[in-house]
Design a binder for these strands. Structure first.
Lengths: 156, 156
DNA sequence: GGTGAAACCTAGCCGTG
DNA sequence: CACGGCTAGGTTTCACC
């Protein structure tokens, strides 16, 4: 299998990286601001950002919300393992409707998936775990988060 | 200790939640769009969003980047435990400079912290783990992510 | 790809109810 | 707390290089 180019920032990658870093920190930065930061004209910046969006490097823009302020102060990691090895393993699809599940990763190691969940209380976590077990026919191993020092730091 | 109101969305919480959901999905939505979605005037929406920002419910705006497209296709969870229990435990501060660490949580259970890291390759992960161990004087237990079904789903 | 200018639209701040 | 109007500034597209 031929090596696929993993980096889609060929021309003037430094400028594109600067734009991505700026937009990752402030997704509402105006093209005027970005232009002064990278030393290009407004329309050149606009063009590059549009390209980055079309290439899928920028997949969208979002507001960062304070989970505590919206009533979801509790976070936990839930490692899950299927009970019946014979059945098809479609746990991610079976769990997608549970909005308390913020992330779902397939992982190496003794467990099959790692979930990150966000709930209002220990009671809500208990209820969620029951729902996860019955919806996906899995056992759960939960690690409760006590405090978060940083989260979602931009990759650039 | 008196119970602190964890939910800062007192008046017309339904409208605020709709705004938060819309902004979480599209952080660049114009106030005109938001106004039609919630059925209020543009200036009313503008006012409410400013309030949500000032109350800290909205902590900022950011571009969502495709990690693979920026050359960081590999994710892992790293559970760390201090080696010397006598020393002060300031691991989060000692690790903050490592930009490959996307998140750092203090957790319950046998490990002290759970890190989420994002790197370019297995080699890069190996190097990062060495840096983590020497910078924070900890042992590491790493769970490699094989694939990600969803990630950073909005909490509203 | 980059530039600068023109047309359109929006953000941000009034005062009013 | 919501409304609508105003002005400055931003977004978007154009022909040109």
């Amino acid at each position: 299998m031929a090596a696929e180019p993993v980096d889609k920032l060929e021309p003037r990658a430094d400028v594109d990286r600067a734009l991505l870093a700026a937009l990752a920190r402030d997704g509402r930065a105006s093209y005027t601001e970005l232009a002064t930061q990278v030393g290009l004209s407004v329309s050149a910046v606009h063009q590059r950002v549009r390209r980055l969006e079309q290439r899928g490097v920028i997949t969208g823009y979002g507001a960062r919300l304070d989970p505590k302020a919206v009533g979801l102060p509790m976070v936990a990691f839930v490692a899950i393992t299927p009970i019946d090895v014979a059945q098809p393993d479609d746990a991610p699809a079976r769990l997608a409707h549970l909005t308390a599940i913020e992330a779902c990763h397939s992982v190496a190691g003794p467990d099959s998936y790692m979930l990150k969940v966000r709930v209002a209380s220990p009671d809500a976590l208990e209820g969620l775990l029951a729902q996860i077990r019955s919806a996906a026919n899995v056992t759960t191993r939960t690690t409760v988060v006590l405090s978060t020092f940083y989260e979602d730091r931009p990759p650039v």
